[in-house]
Amino acid sequence: MPLLEIDHVTRRFGGLVAVDDVSGAIAEGELVGLIGPNGAGKTTLFNVICGFTPPSSGEVRFAGELITGLKPWRICRRGIGRTFQNLRIFPNMTVFDNVSVGAVGRLGIGPVETLLRTRAARDRARDVSARTWQALERTELAPYAHLLAADLPYGRRKYLEIARALATSPRLLVLDEPAAGLNDTETAELARFIRTLHAEGLTILLVEHDMSLVMGICQRVMVLASGRKIADAPPAVVQQDPIVLEAYLGTEEPA
């Protein structure tokens, strides 16, 4: 059974069909890329998966369960973590607190329990703190834990978003254009980092513009154009696919 199953998803905005009958699946442990030219429907498909917009028709299943129509926080708690292309960090909170929000999100303990220092509350506080530190260490942000998020350099803030998503203990991590705004060195570093996460067993869906990143690290690439899926194959095959070349890469040589 695939971890994520996209089943004939269509999303219309008035007369515009942003996503047109797209199906696909991601198996546990895969690292899959989702690419397409601007306006291809990547973001819309992404938003349908994460619960931002419901599909007009079709279903999304996660670990065998239907998740279409669930609120974003429910979907997050089911195990899909995401990052944003335009960062959505909490700028005036510390790096540690930013990541804690992800660690706390899954199950809250109320102020009363905290005040009474119940066993459950103490165990949980320890658990939250442990998961936060773990996420910070995986993203090498631990030294900056007590800095304000707004004071981090742009490149580090990307990792902060990933750390925050990791703290929610996702089974599937969806990255929305993580390389946007990074230079080549930073992109290469990010590629290594994503590969490490994948090697540790995380399933990753990478929505990306940057060809070198997707082609370099993904095992499989789905290509969207004008709302339709036109290819779903390993990078080497996609790069040779005449339909993809025409729709997406134009007449240029593939990168």
Binding site: R88, I89, F90, P91, M93, D97, V101, V104, G108, P111
Partner: peptide
Amino acid sequence: TDIGLSIRAVAANPLGAQYVGV
């Protein structure tokens, strides 16, 4: 408290907060 952390997160960025499970 956890709820306080959530309150601060929603105050800072409601959209970001709901996608990390708040």
